[in-house]
């Protein structure tokens, strides 16, 4: 059986990196979720900020 079909038979267990609201939505639905407190590898430089700014919530 392919891994995708295995996934279809399992309970979803999610790791979420980024928008916290996705975690909150999953929690509301009693889906197990672990939020990663991710941060840019080189915190605090302006280039990073610029990149962060490019993050659109949805295209």
């Amino acid at each position: 059986m392919s891994k995708v079909n295995e996934l279809f038979r399992q309970d979803l267990k999610v790791i979420n990196m980024g928008l916290k609201s996705f975690s909150q939505d999953l929690k509301k639905q009693n889906t197990e979720v672990l939020q990663v407190d991710w941060r840019p590898p080189a915190g605090g430089n302006p280039r990073m900020i610029e990149l962060l700014n490019r993050l659109k919530n949805k295209k």
């Binding site: 915190g43 605090g44 302006p46 900020i49 610029e50 962060l52 700014n53 993050l55």
Partner: peptide, 20 residues
């Protein structure tokens, strides 16, 4: 401090300030 700096850069030079 870092977060303050990031927020100010966000407000004055960037956009999408909410996460900052």
């Amino acid at each position: 401090s870092e977060y303050i700096k990031n927020l100010l850069i966000g407000i004055l030079y960037g956009n999408n300030v909410e996460p900052l």
